[in-house]
Simulated scan of single mutants.
Amino acid sequence: MTSEPRNNRSLLFEEASEWLIRIRENPQSADTRATFEAWRRTSSDHEQAWSDLCRLWSATGKAEPFYRPLAQSSKPKAPKAMRLPVFSLPRLATALAIVCVSALAVFFAAPSLMIRLSADHVTTTAEIQTIRLEDGSTVQLAPESALRIEFHDGVRQVVLVRGEAFFDVAKDTNRKFKVVAGGTEVEVLGTAFDVHVTEASTTVSVARGSVSAFARNASPPSSNNMLAPGDAIEIDERTGIATRTLVAADDVGSWRQGRLVVSNATIASVVDVIRHYDSAWITLADTSLGEQRVTGIYDLKSPELALGALVDPFGGRVRNFGSSVRVISRH
Rank of each mutant, 00 (worst) to 15 (best):
A207P: 06
E37L: 06
L189M: 05
D250I: 11
A110E: 11
P5A: 08
A95R: 07
L53T: 09
S44R: 11
T191C: 00
W50I: 01
L96K: 13
T191M: 02
V158P: 07
R256L: 00
V261P: 03
T198E: 13
D251K: 01
N174P: 06
V86E: 15
P69G: 11
I115N: 00
E199Q: 14
R40V: 01
V206N: 03
V139L: 01
S279T: 12
V106P: 05
E47L: 03
A265P: 05
S29D: 09
T191E: 04
T123C: 02
H196Q: 15
F36I: 02
G190K: 01
L113Y: 11
R317Y: 10
A228L: 10
K62W: 11
A142Q: 12
G315V: 07
D135C: 03
I267N: 07
W39K: 05
G182N: 04
A192P: 08
M1A: 11
D52N: 12
S58I: 00
K77G: 08
I274R: 11
D312Q: 15
V186F: 01
V169E: 01
V186P: 01
V169A: 02
E185V: 00
D52S: 06
A248M: 07
E47Y: 01
F151H: 00
Y298P: 02
A109V: 10
H196P: 07
A242E: 07
R91I: 12
K77Y: 03
E144R: 01
H196Y: 14
E185L: 05
P111R: 12
Q28M: 08
T2Y: 10
K176T: 08
V247N: 05
G290C: 15
S112V: 01
Q129I: 06
T239K: 00
W255G: 04
R275H: 14
N8V: 14
V252E: 04
F167I: 00
G308Q: 12
A30D: 15
E185D: 10
R116H: 14
L12V: 12
D45C: 06
K62Q: 15
S323E: 12
A34N: 12
V197T: 13
